[in-house]
Design a protein around this nucleic acid. Sequence first.
RNA 1: GGCGACGUGGCCGAGUGGUUAGGCACAGCUCUGCAAAAGCUGCUACACCGGUUCGAUUCCGGUCGUCGCCUCCA
Length: 466
Amino acid sequence: MLTVYNTLGRTRQSFEPLEDGRVRMYVCGPTVQSAPHIGHGRCAVAFDVIRRYLMWRGWDVLFVQNITDVDDKIINRAAELGVTTEALVAEMTEQFLTSYRGLGVLDPDRTPAATRHIPEMIELIARLVSRGLAYPSRGDVYFRVRALEGYGKLSGRDVDELRIGARVEPGIDKEDPLDFALWKGAKPGEPSWPSPWGDGRPGWHIECSAMSAKYLGLPFDIHAGGADLIFPHHENEIAQSEGATDGLFARYWLHNGMVNLGGEKLSKSTGHIVDLAEAIETYGGPVIRLFLLRASYRSPIEYSEDSLHDARASLDRLRSFVRRAPSAGRPDVATIDRFVTSMEDDFNTAEALAAVFETVRQGNARLDRGEDAGPLITAVREVAGVLGIDLESAGLGGLVDALTGLATRYEVEAGSAEDMVRRLVDARAAARESRDWSRADAIRDDLAGAGIVIEDSADGVRWYRR
RNA sequence: GGCGACGUGGCCGAGUGGUUAGGCACAGCUCUGCAAAAGCUGCUACACCGGUUCGAUUCCGGUCGUCGCCUCCA
C-alpha cells in the first residue's frame, strides 16, 4: 500500500487515485526570471522520481508543470538587462528545460505557460467576483480572504493570527490587508491584457488554479511543489479554486524540502544560490541526482562539495557493479521487494538506495566467487531506472584529439576513439605480457589522464570513461 | 510573536519500543607485477533533563540549539 505524507492534514495517508489506475499530478514550476539553481533541480528530481515510480507501478500518470512567465520580477529583470520580457522568458525557459533534462528529469506531459491562459484566468476571476469572493478595486481585483471559510487549512494559519502578524502590509486598495491580488491593473510599459476590469495582468496564484483545472480537471490527485510555496501560494490556490467551485481542489499535497548552502536556504532574491547548470557541468547530472535522492525529499539538505564527492563515489560504485557482468534473467525478487516497500513508504529513496547497495555488495561477492549475478544486476538496473539514475558511463565524445596524441606516442594506429582506446589497451596488455611494467603503467596513466580508467580483472581488462 | 520541521557514529543520511540501515572517509587483511575494482574485518551513534515502560535513540513533557514559512522564492 502506497502511503504519502499529505501536507493537507499533516499526516501520512494511504494514496488512492481518484480514477482507478490513473494519477493526475500538478507540480508548481518556476518563475522564469533567472537561471535555475540547485533548489529547482531538487524539486524537479523529487517529483520526477515520484512520477516514474507511479508509472512503473503501472499507473497512467498525467503530469503537468507550469511555467510562470509573467511577474514583477521578470518585468524588472528584463528592464535591468535591457531586453524584452519575451526574450528573457524564452532564454530562461530554455535554461530550465536543459538543466532539468541534464538531471534526467522526464519532460512533463504538458508545460503550460501563464501568458497563454489569460482567458481562462479572467473567467475564473470573474466567477469569484460574481460569487462575492473577489472585488475589483481601481483596476486591480482582490480575493476577499475573510469571505472564504477554511482559509488557512493547508498552512495551518489562522486569519486572525495573520492579521496580528506585523509583516502583513496593508495594500492601499484592499478591503483587508490579507486580501491578495487576482488581477493587477497595468502600469505603463508593462505587458498587459484586456479584461473586464481594464488592462492588466494576472496575479501570481491564479495561473495554477486555472491551468491545473484546464489540463487535469478538478479535483486532481497530487499537487506538488517546494515547501516554501505552502504559504501563501498554495493556500491561495486552494482559496481560488475551491472558492470558485465549492469542490475540493487537490487531494494530496506534497512538498519538497529546501536545499541549503552554509546552513541557509538558497534564494534567488538574495543571490545565495548554487547555479544548477554549473553544478551539472562540474559533477554531472547523475551525481547530483544521486546526491538529492540520498535524503528524503521532504528533509532540508545541505549542499556541499563533500556531499557531492560522496555522491560521486557512490555512483561509481553502482556503475562499477553493473559493468562487471551483463544483466541476465528476471530481476532479483528480494531487491525489488525491498525497493517497493521503501518507495511505498512516502517514496523513501534513501532506504531504496540502501536496498540497492546491499544488492550491489551481494552481487560483487557472487561475482568474486565466480557465481552468477545476472538477476542482481538486472534488479539494480531496473531500480536505478525507476529512480532515473543513469548507470551508463559517459561516451568518448571529445576525446579524439587526446587519444590521437596517445596513439602517436605509443605507436598504435589512429582511428575512431573507440578503436584507439582498444588498441592502447591492447598495447598495454602486450607490454604487461613482456613484463615491461613502465610502458604498461605509462599507458594506463596517460589514459587515466584522458579520463579513461583501466581495471584489470580475472576475466579480462575493463575500461570506462570516468 | 504565530505556525511548522528538525537535532543520529569522522562526514552525509534512513529508521525502529528490545534485533545490521546504507553511502562516503579511515585502518587492517585477501586478491594483484603495481594500481584500480571487489570481498572480509574493525571503528558503532542516537542534543540535554525528567516521565511512562520489564526495557526508549524510538512514546510524553520540558530545556537548549538549528532551520523553514508568516514578503518574491522550488
